[in-house]
C-alpha cells in the first residue's frame, strides 16, 4: 500500500550571520533613531520564504527543505537559516 502524498507548507527564515555587516539593517536602525526611537538598539534585516512541498510524509518533506536551504536558499558563508512548519 502506498502512502498518499500531501502538501506541506514551511517557512524559512534567513539571516546574515552576526559577524557579517548588514548595511540595510544599519540604515533602518539609523532612520529609527532619527525619528527619536532611541531605545531601538539594533536592527538586522533578513529574508522569509514560504515553500509548499508535495510529499508522502512530514519527515521527508522536512529533509527536502533542509537540503534546499543548504543547497540554494542560504549561503552558509554569510547566512544562517531556520525552518518553521507553517
Amino acid at each position: 500500500m502506498t502512502e498518499e502524498s500531501k502538501v506541506f507548507t514551511f517557512k524559512v527564515e534567513i539571516m546574515l550571520r552576526s559577524e557579517v555587516l548588514d548595511p540595510q539593517g544599519e540604515t533602518i536602525n539609523q532612520s529609527l533613531k532619527n525619528n527619536d526611537l532611541n531605545n531601538v538598539l539594533n536592527v538586522r534585516q533578513g529574508k522569509l520564504f514560504e515553500l509548499q512541498i508535495n510529499c508522502s510524509n512530514l519527515e521527508e518533506a522536512k529533509k527536502q527543505v533542509e537540503s534546499i536551504c543548504k543547497d540554494m536558499l542560504a549561503n552558509p558563508v554569510i547566512e544562517e537559516y531556520k525552518i518553521f512548519e507553517a
Binding site: 546574515l16 557579517v20 555587516l21 548595511p23 540595510q24 540604515t27 549561503n75 558563508v77 554569510i78
Partner: peptide, 10 residues
C-alpha cells in the same frame, strides 16, 4: 571561497 555582499554604503 568567501562571498560578495552589499557594498558597505548601500
Amino acid at each position: 571561497p568567501g562571498a560578495l555582499i552589499t557594498n558597505r554604503n548601500q
